[in-house]
Amino acid sequence: MEPTLLVVQFLNGIQLGTLLFLVASGLTLVFGILDVINLAHGVVYMVGAYAAASTFVRSGSLALAIAIAPVAALLVGLLLDRLVLRFLYDRNHLDQVLATFGVILFVDEAVRAIFGPAALPYPLPPAFEWSLELPGGATYPAWRLVIIVSGLVLAAILFGILHRTRAGMVVRAAATDPGMLAMLGVDIRRLFLVVLGAGSALAGFAGALAGPIVAVQPGMGDSVLILSFVVIVTGGLGSVQGALLGSFLVGLADTLGRSFLTDLLRLLLPPAAANEVGPALASMAIYLVMAIVLLIRPQGLVSLRRAAR
């Protein structure tokens, strides 16, 4: 029984990791290219989920819902750039954090005012209401497989673009040394817009994928945002590879911590104490991982700037 449970929990960690990667990849590139901390990225994820949920409930078509989400997210992402972000390019991180924090406050409240404080319904169509039977009696829900597969496919496409095309090379170069690239005549702002748009679309897509699993409600982007920041800082700022690595590390640390930590502690401690300490430690797991990584490698797992130097 234990090995199957381990496999299932491993899959769960990967699934959480793929969702995080979809949000984190945009965040890390936006940071890498213009050194902009964009806290409003979580809001874009929420917009994706809301767009998908309201489309699905009205049209009944999941395909349409999932197609509309990235478009809506892209538009909101670019609108945010027009209204706020573009004024922040040359500011320090603190200004960026504060202004985009203001954006979070506003958009969360606006969504609450428009859609109401209650969660929106976003059920799955019956076609996805089945589970994969695993040997040993465990099952794995089809929709989570969809998330893993589509997330991994997108990650592969992203890496393909970044490492196999000229445009991707420019983006990678910009994330490593934007000043040099600007001197070479590349329009960094336009490049930034393209990356921001693509990153927003990915986050919106993640929102649409996660919607049927989680509760679609105001503020749903906040926790994802914090997790994504943990991911990109652990992985190494500006690096998509690092974001991928960080996503899986955080996804697995969180999931495995939640599943096994309390049981492990029960071997060492009396059950009451284990019940007390285990969940607290599991909640801290990802922060512990991040702190340890940063203490050993202060630049994160994959360090772009240092490699470039």
Binding site: M1, L16, R144, A282
Partner: peptide
């Protein structure tokens, strides 16, 4: 089993797997 989840957690896949087991 008595499982306590993280505050505000929205992913319960790990807990559901434990239930199945």
């Amino acid at each position: 089993d008595e499982v306590y989840t993280q505050l505000g957690a929205v992913d319960f896949s790990a807990e559901i797997a434990k239930i199945q087991a």
